[in-house]
């Protein structure tokens, strides 16, 4: 019975791993920490998997466990220095796709998001993943109104960074 469960879980996670990588890239600053957090999220997903009923989409269920792990459960083992090469892996902006101004703006915005607190990051992440406010409020345990208010504050913060 377990073999089958393991196989199904790993297959689903393998095809949905982008979600976890994106969470890791927001909450960590170098490759080791990224892998560390990825592993912790995988462990938490696996531990909770027997409770996954399949009435929701696997990916939807993953958002909650991944964010909970990043926000609450994960303990950074060491203070790490942000390394340049890692930063470019996830937030790489190809110069041929954008003109200079856009590229600069995106880089500024990604940097600004990395500076946000854990909760603000989660808000931005769910927003970027095209989640609606109902899902955002449910994942974080706050009301929809508060999710909107908070999101507007984050937008304003980013706006000031971009247009000083």
């Amino acid at each position: 019975m377990n073999k089958e469960l393991e196989h199904r879980f790993v297959t689903e996670l393998e095809s949905n791993q982008n979600i976890v990588h994106k969470v890791c890239s927001l909450y960590t600053n170098d490759r080791d920490a990224h892998n560390d957090l990825f592993q912790e999220i995988t462990i938490q997903l696996w531990k909770a998997y027997p409770k996954f009923r399949g009435d929701a989409k696997f990916s939807t269920w993953m958002y909650r466990v991944a964010l909970n792990t990043a926000i609450t459960l994960y303990r950074k083992s060491k203070k790490r220095v942000q390394t340049q090469d890692y930063d470019s892996v996830i937030f790489k902006i190809k110069s041929d796709e954008y003109d200079d101004t856009e590229e600069k703006q995106l880089k500024l915005m990604y940097n600004a998001i990395k500076q946000l607190g854990d909760i603000d990051k989660a808000l931005v992440f769910l927003y970027l993943e095209d989640k609606d406010y109902a899902e955002i409020s449910e994942t974080l345990g706050i009301t929809e109104v508060n999710a909107r208010v908070k999101m507007n504050r984050v937008k304003n913060k980013l706006r000031t960074i971009l247009n000083p």
């Binding site: 393991e6 879980f9 790993v10 996670l13 393998e14 791993q17 990825f38 592993q39 912790e40 995988t42 462990i43 938490q44 696996w46 531990k47 792990t69 459960l73 994960y74 303990r75 083992s77």
Partner: peptide
């Protein structure tokens, strides 16, 4: 990924 699910949590 399969290797990872047997690792110990450090949460």
């Amino acid at each position: 990924i399969y290797q990872m699910i047997w690792k110990k949590s450090s949460s």
